[in-house]
Computed example of a mutant assay.
Amino acid sequence: MNPISQHLASRGLSPSDFLVITKLPVDVLNDDFDVERLSASQLKVAAQVLGIPEYLLFSTRSSKLKRLPLDFRSTGNAKVVHTKYSLSAVYQSYSNSEFISLIERHVNIKGRFPDLREDQTPIERMRVLFNCDSASDLFYLDPISLFKKLRTNAEDSGLFVFVDDVVDTSFRGFCFKDDHRNFVFINRRHFNVRSRIFTLAHEVAHLLQGHPGIIDPVGHRSSVERQTNRLAAEFLISLSTLTEYLPANAEKQEIPELLSYLHSRLPFSKFFLAMRLQELGGSFSGIVNKWLKLVNVKDLPNSYGTQELAQYEHEIDQLESQSDDDLDVEAIRRQGSGGRQVSRLGSRTLETIEIARQQNIVSVFDVQSSLGLPAKYYEKTIASLRRQLAEVQRYGPS
């Protein structure tokens, strides 16, 4: 029985009445109907008529139904996990975790964070996980290479990182812990690589602070998000390091020119740099709003964590970092089919399944079914993985 029919039966609503009210096609009640075929608006109408959360319709697997409310709905994500696109990313990530869990029963893999002492501060834990004192140690790399390096270091420390395009651009990413495994999902859709550097650090900061599954939406800034933002920003570039990159008489320069100067020397978006400059205070107080006015973005509250300001972050990134988007798109195009799978699944996942495949625990068709990696691309993907790991190794010390 498909989930719609199942919930109809439990609520005593006749199929004919349901179809009249929702105006959905008759075949939605067929046993073999795939709920993913519904549009986001159709899914919303069906859930409202049945009086249930949409995730109960979207997933037909009881294990996921039991886990999603605990990890996501209890942490203030009700307004975010609401489209079939964001739900798809969540469920696919859990599906990946389940497949890795099955492999772990037969293969001894490194899927745990390094031992973290209780007396370590959150920033010290970040340094251990990323295996560097600060992202500033790697500023000699371009933004794409820096993201690859930070991601690989984190995956070498036991983190699983997935990066994929999700039509829903209301969120940048999310994290969750499944047993001892830690996962980060990053939404690549329309967000350039400079933004993804921050998202990776942000989601890792959530995990290291013991926060449960949280989606990081554009437009949501709770106290937890603000605290996590500060931790991620401090790891990426401390305020003392930022001052070292300021030109002479920086406080007297025009804001657009100052941000362009820093943007050309640091691997971050102008929005992020403006926010960090504002935290220096003094002549930089209010610099965010001043800059937004100059680039014709509406005047917004002068606060690091307000919902209104965050809602324009994507717009600002698009306005100010178009060249980085172009560079990012070109890099993805050059990757080929195998390289794109490496980017999507990450080194930790692919190394795990390759060990299992070599020991005849899984086949390429198991991988295709569970992870969506086409069997015909498997060998290309593993070859691309080895090339990328060798490339990242050449970037410098881990």
Rank of each mutant, 00 (worst) to 15 (best):
N2H: 07
P3E: 14
I4P: 13
I4W: 13
H7K: 02
H7W: 09
S10W: 03
F18W: 04
K23W: 01
L24P: 06
V26Y: 00
D27P: 10
N30D: 10
V35K: 04
A40L: 06
Q42K: 04
S59D: 07
D71H: 15
R73I: 15
N77L: 01
N77Q: 10
S86Q: 03
V90T: 06
Y91D: 11
Y94L: 14
Y94W: 12
P114M: 08
L116I: 07
R117W: 02
E118G: 00
L141D: 04
T152Y: 13
D165E: 12
R172F: 14
F174Q: 02
N182K: 06
F191T: 15
N192C: 03
R196W: 11
V204P: 12
H206E: 11
L208V: 14
G210K: 01
H211Q: 09
T228Q: 12
N229F: 15
A233N: 11
I237N: 07
S240Y: 01
Y245E: 04
L246T: 13
P247H: 08
A248I: 03
E251Y: 03
E254C: 03
I255C: 04
P256E: 01
S264L: 08
K270A: 10
L273I: 11
L273G: 11
R276Y: 14
R276I: 11
L277Q: 01
Q278W: 09
Q278H: 04
G281T: 01
V288P: 09
L294H: 07
L294T: 08
N296F: 07
N296A: 08
K298G: 02
G305H: 02
E308W: 00
E308I: 02
S321L: 10
Q322F: 14
S323D: 13
D328R: 07
D328S: 02
R334M: 06
Q335V: 08
G336K: 02
S337T: 10
L345T: 05
G346E: 01
T349K: 04
E351G: 04
E354A: 01
R357A: 05
I361S: 06
S363G: 06
V364P: 12
D366R: 13
D366Q: 09
L373P: 05
P374D: 04
P374H: 09
A383L: 05
A383Y: 07
S384L: 04
R387S: 15
L389D: 07
A390P: 09
V392I: 15
Q393E: 14
R394P: 11
